[in-house]
Design a protein around this nucleic acid. Structure first.
Lengths: 341, 341
DNA sequence: GCACGTTGCTGAATCGAATCAGCAGCGTCA
DNA sequence: TGACGCTGCTGATTCGATTCAGCAACGTGC
């Protein structure tokens, strides 16, 4: 806690033998806007280094009303096991642009949300990323109108705010490509049970579309919530239909874990009898045996993209950026089933 | 983006018919330090509400050199599947005290770490929480000396900085209590392979101590890294020793998952033949069948406690706060084995 | 030798809140 | 009536950087 008296701009200016004005312009890289001798520029630069000058952000913010600060408000992204990587990506991207990332969670409470947004606005954030744990529709709080906002992993059709989301539809098509060559029926496990969640419906739509393009179809959709137990039970009762091979497309990795449990208990071989593919690409996919082939949510990239979009908005940008969902290959699909485009 | 011209303290003062000084004292709850009429106080309060006055943080920070901002620097906490809850707890605790939480990750890169800490110091954070994904020893960067610092999930013996960590030793004793009544040998899966990691050694020490107190002992320690595959293989080769019942104490939930896979493949019943307990208490524990009984890392509490310790340091505080690891009960230990203290 | 343009800077105001030092006005008391 | 003390405030400065407007000093041309 030995904090020496900080050097101010005035100290640098004095040491370089120029005025604060001159020093300010030089250190902000705006010496071109003034006629300044190379000598003066060099002296100021040297003085800044020698004195280890670091501008006082509060003073700068007061003058410029910019804080080099980005807020990220979410329902519960930090609590999410995998979605928290959005924070990793977002904070890295903020750092790239010499900003810092402020985070806060509302846990879905609208009152907390309002207070949190106001708190961030009070702090003078340069913009806010509004994120959700699950890809879904939202209605953002009105206070967000007071600053620049980018939605992350969600959409607010009413507001028309720019958004960064995973390309669930494209992901569905990828899943189709993975299983198109598999013998036996293609069965989806876990329909879109969650109100307002985009993921399920869009993945399914992409899957069906691309399967159709390959002359295949979804034979069955097993209804269950997106949980291990739900999927296990769904597959267990479906087992009674007598199907003994095919492809099981799971709506997320937890569902796939339930599917593994159900199949393993019945000594059905993966990928021998059943190919299994999934969505999420979480670490869980690598823990299963065989490792699960999963169409991944690029969370870190999503977070980083949202922050970049907030800080340097491209001129005539499209309002919604959809990021590709890459396939993380495991061993749950027979190699022979791979269909190249 | 319709941002009306903000109301300043001067506006409030004018509307209330007092000076800025008076308004400032009243709005900061320091009217007691001055002799002020109840009437003036009421008028200022009313004016502030009517004008929706919100102090400019930059101006306040410039004057007071406090920012109501806390930094959290970590190696890769946000990327951790479960440890990211430290962020949840930390940001909630920050909000409680009208602070906001700044986060940044270094990914273990010392250069990035230095830059990140400097960036946060430049921002004028009121303090920094230095966190690690795994509970281990660290050597904090020198720049942290410039501000108040609390370590989270790590310790730096050299610095003597206050720290908040899980009570791994106590957790080990809890695990002992869970399995002390189980028939058959107590076997530990996953020794402390990671350099500088505290968790393994301390859990094991607590386990052995409490088992001894109950007249039991650790029969075997299976060496493996703390991964699903490592644990699965370790148990698989241990199977050759012919032991067909007992208790398997896993060093974390992923290890337990590997143990489940190995046991299930051999049709060894859990908890019938083998009781399984673990450490972490992550969501993974609930995904396994039967649900895993696990001694939990209270990540959210750890994060919250660290921030509280930073913001209101108790006077003669002990330097290291150890938080209890609560048991999350699943079905992987036979009910009869429970030993009450 | 004087007007004029260019070069190379500087002075002073500003952002908005916090805070120290001080000061009218009134009542009281001798 | 004048000294004194109390009440209830206010003026002016400060924090540190940004930025507009302006101005010496010098060279050049006529």
């Amino acid at each position: 806690m030995v904090r020496a008296r900080k050097t101010r701009l005035a100290d640098v200016a004095a040491r370089a033998g120029v005025s604060r004005t001159t020093a300010s312009y030089i250190l902000n890289g705006r010496s071109g806007e003034m006629r300044l001798s190379d000598d003066a520029v060099a002296r100021v630069r040297a003085a800044a280094v020698e004195l280890d000058y670091r501008p006082n952000r509060a003073a700068r913010s007061l003058r410029t009303s910019q804080t080099r600060t980005v807020g990220l408000v979410s329902d519960s992204v930090a609590s999410g096991h995998f979605a928290s990587r959005m924070l990793t990506g977002a904070s890295a991207a903020a750092r790239e642009s010499d900003h810092v990332l402020l985070i806060g969670e509302t846990d879905g409470d609208p009152l907390v949300e309002r207070l949190l947004v106001e708190q961030m606005l009070d702090q003078g954030v340069d913009g806010i990323v509004y994120a959700t744990l699950r890809h879904r529709e939202v209605a953002v709080p009105a206070a967000l109108r007071q600053t620049r906002t980018v939605l992350l992993n969600c959409a607010d059709p009413a507001s028309g705010l720019p958004a960064v989301v995973p390309d669930e539809h494209g992901g569905g098509r990828r899943a189709a490509d993975l299983v198109a060559g598999v013998a036996g029926p293609v069965v989806v496990v876990g329909d879109d049970h969650e109100q307002g969640t985009h993921a399920g419906a869009m993945r399914l739509a992409g899957l069906e579309e691309q399967l159709a393009a390959r002359g295949r179809e979804v034979a069955d959709v097993l209804r269950c919530d997106w949980s291990v137990a739900g999927a296990r039970e769904a597959v267990t009762s479906w087992w009674g239909t007598g199907v003994r091979n095919g492809a099981l497309v799971c709506m997320n990795d937890r569902v796939a874990m339930g599917v593994y449990q159900a199949l393993t208990a019945r000594e059905a071989a993966i990928p021998g009898a059943f190919a299994v593919v999934s969505f999420d690409g979480s670490e869980l996919a690598t823990w299963l045996t065989p490792a699960l082939t999963s169409v991944a949510l690029p969370f870190a990239e999503l977070g980083a993209t949202a922050v970049r979009l907030l800080l340097d908005p491209p001129p005539g940008a499209s309002r919604t950026v959809r990021l590709e969902m890459p396939v993380v290959h495991g061993g749950s699909v027979p190699a022979s089933a791979a269909v190249t485009r």
